[in-house]
Amino acid sequence: MRWPLTPRQEQAIVRLLLLFLTALSIFILAFIIFFILRHGLPVLSWEFLVRNPREMGKEGGIFSTIIGTIVLIILALTLATPLGVGTAIFLTEYTPEGRLTRIIRFGSECLAGIPSIIFGLFGFILFVTKLKFGWSILSGSLTLAFMILPTIIRTSEEAIKFVPQAYREVSFSLGGTKWQTVSRVVLPSALPGIATGVILSIGRSIGETAAVIFTAGSALRIPDSLFSSTRTMSVHFYILAREGISLSKAYGTAAVLLISILSVNIFTYYLMNRFLRKYS
């Protein structure tokens, strides 16, 4: 090939290079999953899932951390979902675009960009120390709720905007009040889209570590009250790996983490596609 290259030759080379880089990206990401599953799946067993950890996690399973994760996420969603959906309803149905909506959206976007360690720091100072909740499920779920709020706001807003305007007109024209229109027509139609956001934030919460470890703590017992400290799967995995407690248990926990997150995300994807297809 002679220099300078013709545009055709240049294109051929670039194309090859781009293909290589794209394939590399896919390979790396797929490899991570493969690697974790390859080492983690052999560790998995029914026992691993339903037995509590013993000797700091060196022996036994991860049952209490699964419970911890689930409890924390359910509580966080219980708080964040009404707040997020309410905000989205207000933004889309109750107020015209203007300064107020801009401020609210800006706040939500900023919140979305704040790193989880800052949430951890904040949750620690406010909930754990100032409000004296201690390292507890309460502190952890409040912090987590704040963290996932922007995701729920954004996805709910998009879902609500997808509901055909004609539905609202029908409801109003039949004598519906605004709230009747929202609660009986808009929300039911937007529900699958809203669910997408909620499930998406479940996926994010399962993997969250920095914000949780400083607020919910890392106790290995099964929690018995809102004020018990608990350890989530991701925190458990982090501690196992970082303190070199047990590599095989770490792989096993990582596999459970990955499988649960990926299935949640795949489910979200499925749900979102169905929702979009329905309205377009």
Partner: peptide, 19 residues
């Protein structure tokens, strides 16, 4: 408004059955 709209019904250009 709700009473007015109950008294004055409306049918739109495209049929809009609710789901």
């Amino acid at each position: 408004l709700t009473e007015l709209r109950r008294k004055v019904g409306m049918v739109f250009a495209l049929p809009v059955p609710l789901p």
